[in-house]
């Protein structure tokens, strides 16, 4: 009995096991992709002492850095980078803009780069804002909010000061003052990276 019964049973069993494997592969594959997506979407905020996430900036018309209308963090390697996230609709940003401009004028020839990143802003409003405050340091829109996502900003204004080696040296949530800028930049210049 067992011979025939086994022979009859075998194809059914093997097709069932193939189906079962296929189903589990699909389920595990989906879970893996979902997990990967969740890990990426909840990436930790870059902290002081960590390498700054890379970025590419295409500056607003009329703005440039080192004769270029676009630049990346790699281009600024060896310099202190003060990256300020702001928006024209942000009330608190108005408190710090003049101080950032003053610091830029003070340190621009000492190996310090200031960049403004307009977060979730409407371009004409950004331009109007920059004209209102007569800011001269380069500004760029955060296209696709990629930079603010990489830096995991919690809002605007926020300022990241990156040292000459590309490490985050200081993070300011909220408006930054000229005294803080002086203190951090002077220290980094003295350390020389």
């Amino acid at each position: 009995m067992s011979d025939i019964a086994n022979r009859l049973e075998q194809p059914k069993k093997s097709s069932r096991s193939y189906l079962s494997i296929a189903v589990w592969v699909i389920v595990l594959g989906l879970l893996a992709v979902l997990g990967w997506g969740l890990i990426n979407s909840t990436a930790p905020r870059p902290e002081v002492g960590e390498m700054a996430p890379k970025f590419d900036l295409a500056f607003f018309d009329g703005y440039e850095w080192d004769g270029k209308t676009a630049a990346s963090l790699e281009d600024m390697n060896g310099q202190i980078v003060v990256m300020n996230f702001w928006a024209s609709w942000c009330v608190e940003c108005r408190v710090e803009t003049d101080e950032l401009e003053a610091a830029w004028l003070k340190y621009r020839d000492q190996g310090v780069v200031f960049v403004g990143v307009a977060y979730a802003d409407v371009e004409p409003n950004s331009i109007e804002y920059m004209e209102e405050f007569a800011v001269t340091f380069p500004h760029a829109p955060d296209l696709g909010t990629r930079i603010s996502n990489d830096y995991e900003i919690t809002g605007v204004p926020e300022t990241f000061i990156i040292d000459q080696t590309g490490e985050i040296a200081y993070v300011q949530i909220g408006p930054i003052s000229s005294s803080t800028l002086d203190q951090v930049i002077s220290q980094l210049l003295a350390d020389g990276g």
Binding site: A87, S88, W89, A120, D121, V122, N125
Partner: peptide
């Protein structure tokens, strides 16, 4: 009701 959204609606 934020200003950012008012700007976006205007856009």
């Amino acid at each position: 009701p934020t200003q950012a959204c008012a700007d976006w609606r205007e856009l």
